[in-house]
Nucleic acid binder design. Structure first.
Lengths: 161, 161
DNA sequence: CGGTATCCCATTTGATACTG
DNA sequence: CAGTATCAAATGGGATACCG
């Protein structure tokens, strides 16, 4: 059966979970963040069934995370590229890589090094920070309901985060 | 059919995707980050089938993201709490909330306000930053294969991120 | 309360083949 | 190349019942 829709939760995280709570979606996005743009390129690299890939790409386009552009030269080809909304997922993607590397690392050492072009130094872990850049723990963050909150969220965020 | 395993990719993001690429998992983790600890509490709030919840909790415990502690007073009860590995997901959770709020916001205004106890100010968006705190775009980040890299990853990260 | 155990069935996966 | 079409298998979702 299809999973219950999270629409009625009307919660920011539920929305994101609805979009990104799928392993293929995350891997496809990883490949696109890495510069892959064509169907077959992604297909051969991920060994994903073509109909599954087709389905996920359609959904991602439909949700405004990717845009599909026919190649002006060869009309048969299409390119999939990130929209600004899709680019907004960048901190999430990096945080996922860092978490995977930190907690599910290989005994043989790092699988990947991420560094910055600005100074050549390794990327520090993505963190939750306050306005002045201080890292925050969950207990230092307060959540309050906004005008568009729902009963569902109120029950959740009634306590502090 | 069961989804192909991502084990052989041996990639940090694939690992994370394998663990977190599930909508129920993300919502359960959200509730636990918000202080919920008991089975029924989560069950009633999410309206998730009990066997699905049971399955996800077992998997999360098995993967070291949650730990299960029998209540010392009432042995029938159990509490599910985040391990350090689970707490490491905090930046990802916040980034998901912020992305959902930013791009899938309600027309009625914000659903939630996140602020810091340190200064009372709103939380800035979680961002990828360099060692000195400067925000980075994808093009400013370089990925290089480490000693434990795989052919799969090499093909992906051959280009720059 | 805090789950586990069954059950059914629709969806989804993944293989294969095919088309423009 | 870029998908669409078809199909069998089986997983996973959800309902219900049950147990300590």
């Amino acid at each position: 059966m299809r999973r219950k829709s999270f629409e009625d939760f009307d919660c920011s995280l539920a929305q994101a979970a609805d979009y990104l709570g799928d392993a293929w979606v995350l891997l496809i996005l990883r490949n696109i963040f890495n510069g892959m743009r064509r169907f077959d390129e992604i297909n051969s690299h991920l060994e994903i069934p073509t109909n599954t890939l087709s389905d996920r790409l359609k959904t991602l386009v439909g949700r405004g995370i990717l845009r599909r552009e026919p190649d002006p030269v060869d009309g048969r080809r299409a390119e999939y590229r990130l929209t600004p909304k899709g680019e907004g997922l960048y901190p999430i993607m990096i945080a996922l890589v860092q978490w995977g590397e930190c907690w599910e690392g290989s005994p043989a050492g790092p699988r990947i090094y991420l560094s910055s072009r600005t100074d050549g130094k390794p990327l520090p872990p993505v963190q939750v920070r306050d306005a002045s850049g201080l890292p925050l723990t969950p207990r230092q963050v307060v959540a309050k309901p906004g005008p568009a909150t729902t009963e569902h969220m109120r029950k959740l965020y009634g306590g502090n985060w």
